[in-house]
Structures are given as structure tokens and as C-alpha cells.
Design a protein around this nucleic acid. Structure first.
Lengths: 207, 207
DNA sequence: GCTGATACTGTTTAGACGAACAGTATGATG
DNA sequence: CATCATACTGTTCGTCTAAACAGTATCAGC
């Protein structure tokens, strides 16, 4: 793949920026206007060269049909937008729409499963699951409504707070267990609401 | 925000799908064609209603200027595309462009820092950093070229393989230490190449 | 059974848009 | 110094496109 000239790179950057901020790629004339060209054909010519060098694709004769094609972007998979909640109140349900605190966006391949409408994320508070290598401050992704299997980690509602616990079965009865010797709890799982099954994790270093 | 009818939802889904797969939103006539409408005005009417209900925005008189505005998508922040390498050979550098094995896409807020051109990701192999709660199979994100501070985790090249170690300073000299009693190594860091400083982590449950 | 919203067909129009053609200027390369 | 690619101006053309107008059919709620 040939290298772009400085001007061509600037045009490509502008297109990319437009797509990011406005969700729409600019027309030839908008490109010309942005760079102060007095003719839309100046932009057309640039696009032709950028396209020839492989950094751009477009559908002929279609308006705003440009597409930036960097090597990385070509590898980019399908994205998932997962709602991030601070704390989940008792009645989490798919129907009752709750206002999320934020949005975690990840590509599907990296988290290893395809999120559904019942997928949500929580920021982990406390070190109750340190034994399963889930740390304070991590973002944990859950699937609501899935049936937990023994050994899986779940988010459960205890004292109006979402808490992480391991789902275990002892003598045929389901329990929830903390993975930290400091919390020797073993709570019968019938008594509380299991909000979701743990699916993925995102951690940022806190420096 | 009012609810959409079934037909309106279908139209909105189609627009969203077009944007995902082709990067471009459809025109009124393309929508009409897709649903078998004989008049582009049928699509126009649907768009008008969807827009009125707040699920869509558009710039008047501009071609393909639709924008899906779900509550989640509004919260979506800036995205970062990070190259994922299998193993990094000795000469990792920003100049020498190396073919990535994949692409990890995350929103900047979730990983807690803004990736640069020197950011890359590795899939963790082995449990040498289990003491710092980094597990086998995790995707670790690194910043190449950053100066490690004592206690930070780094990716180092040992025996032609990228390995995770903690960067420590003992008696004024830098060492690399594994965080697992099974690996009691303490390697003088001058002898090896530090490829990057650990910044973030993505984990998927392996069930 | 009236009314209003939804869900269309069918047609027209003005303007937006990509593409093509005809030139000019500049700078790099050999 | 000739040549070629880049980087434009200026213009025309045909099509694409959003929008507007005039209707029709169906269905739910009252």
C-alpha cells in the first residue's frame, strides 16, 4: 500500500473525523468548503488518489458513500453497546427501562459472547471476588436472566446492593459464596435476587 | 419517549443494520425498495414519525444524513482500535508496521486512557501474573515506549516470547519479577527488552 | 359510525451530488 | 530541461435525493 501525501492524509483525517463526530461522511463539496477549495473537483481528485492507494472505499454515484479503510479498521469486528449501571435497584427487568450511568462499548470478539438486550455492566466495588481475580473498580459484564451453573459468578442483590458471589450447590441446594476469606458467607440463594451471570471483565490500571 | 410501532421499529433496525454493515445510512428510496414499498414517500412518512418520537435525527435536505439515536448510543464515548498481536517479535517499533492478528475495539472511558499509536494488545498465556489477578487467556493492553515505574506490570521479551512481569527496583537496580510462587525469577531488566507497560485488561469467561 | 393515527401509492419539483471535461500551477525526479 | 504526479480552478451534465402534495386503505378508540 502506497503512502499518502500530507494533503491526502489531511483529507482522510477530515473524513474520518466527520464520520466520528457527525456519523456521516462529507460530500465532495463539503470537503472542498472545509479546505477552502473553490472547486469541488479538487476534492474529487484527492478522493480518487486516496481511493487508488487503498485507504478509502466508495460506492460510485452514491452520495456520502465514502468509507475509510485502514488496516486496523478492516479487522474491527461487530461492536456491542452495554449499559453500565451504578447500582441496580431491586426490579431490574428488560421491560422497565432504567437509565444507565454509562455505556461500555466493546467488540464482540474481545468479550467472547454476543450481548443481548439483557446484557448489562456493573462497576465492581470491594474485593469480595478477589479469589476469582475480580478486583475493586473492574467493570463486570453480566447476562440477566441466564440460569447460573455451579461455579459460575453471579451478581446478586443483597441489602439493596449488587454484590458478586459464586453460585454453588451443596447437598442439592443452591448457595452463594464470596471468594474472599474475609467474607465467609454462604447464603441460601432462594432468599435473594440473582441479577445476572458474570460473562466478561474490563479493568483499567488506576495509576 | 413514545414507543415505536412494529413497522417503525423494523425500519429503524434496517437503518441501523445498514450503518453497521455498510457504514452508510440508506436513502428514502433504498428503504422503500428494501421493504417493497412502491413509493419513497412511505419511507419518508415512517422516518418522519420515528424522528418525531426521538429515535432518529437527520439533517434536512442532506443525503444519507440519518442518525440513529438510542439512549445507549448517545452515551457511547470515543472508541479506540487497538491492534492485537499473537506474539511480538524482537523488533517491535512504531515504524516497522507489523501485521496484527486482530483488533480490540473499546471505548476510551472503559479502559481508562486514550490509546496512542504505540498502544497494543496481547493475549496472556500462562499464569505468571496470577498474583496481580491477570489470568491465562486475558487480553492485556500495553503502552509501548512508556517508562515503567516500580510496581508496574510490563511485557518483556524473554526467549523470543512476550512475558508479563512486574517491574521492581532493588538496591537501585531494576529487576523483573513474576507474580507467582511457581516462578521465583528475578531477572535484571537490562538484559531484556521491555515492550510495553500494562494499562488495561479484558477478560472473557471461558464457558 | 365517526375520528384520528398509521401505512401506504403515485407524482412532481428543486436542489444536492458525483462524475467528467478542460485547463493551470507547482514541485519532484531524472 | 523535460516529464510526470500532485494540487488545484471553473464548468457542465445527468442522476440522485429529500420534501411536498394529493390521494387511499386499514384499524383502534371512543
Amino acid at each position: 500500500m502506497m503512502k499518502l501525501t500530507v494533503k491526502q492524509q489531511r483529507v482522510l483525517d477530515f473524513i474520518h473525523k466527520c464520520q466520528q463526530t457527525q456519523g456521516v461522511t462529507p460530500t465532495h463539496q463539503e470537503i472542498a468548503a472545509h479546505f477552502g477549495f473553490r472547486s469541488p473537483n479538487a476534492a474529487t481528485e484527492h478522493l480518487r488518489l486516496i481511493r487508488r492507494k487503498g485507504f478509502l472505499e466508495s460506492v460510485p454515484r452514491k452520495a456520502r458513500a465514502l468509507r475509510v479503510t485502514s488496516a486496523l479498521l478492516k479487522l474491527r469486528g461487530r461492536l456491542a453497546d452495554i449499559p453500565l449501571y451504578g447500582t441496580i435497584p431491586a426490579g431490574f427487568s428488560a421491560d422497565r427501562e432504567q437509565q444507565p450511568d454509562g455505556c461500555v462499548t466493546v467488540d464482540v470478539a474481545s468479550i467472547g459472547f454476543k450481548p443481548t438486550r439483557n446484557t448489562f455492566a456493573l462497576r465492581v466495588a470491594g474485593d469480595s471476588m478477589i479469589g476469582r481475580h475480580i478486583c475493586d473498580g473492574d467493570i463486570a459484564v453480566f447476562e440477566h436472566g441466564a440460569e447460573p451453573r455451579p461455579g459460575q459468578i453471579v451478581a446478586a442483590l443483597i441489602d439493596r446492593q449488587s454484590t458478586l458471589k459464586t453460585f454453588v450447590v451443596k447437598n442439592g441446594r443452591p448457595f452463594l459464596k464470596a471468594e474472599n476469606p474475609k467474607y465467609p458467607d454462604l447464603i441460601p440463594s432462594e432468599e435473594l435476587v440473582i441479577q445476572g451471570v458474570f460473562r466478561a471483565l474490563i479493568r483499567q490500571t488506576n495509576e
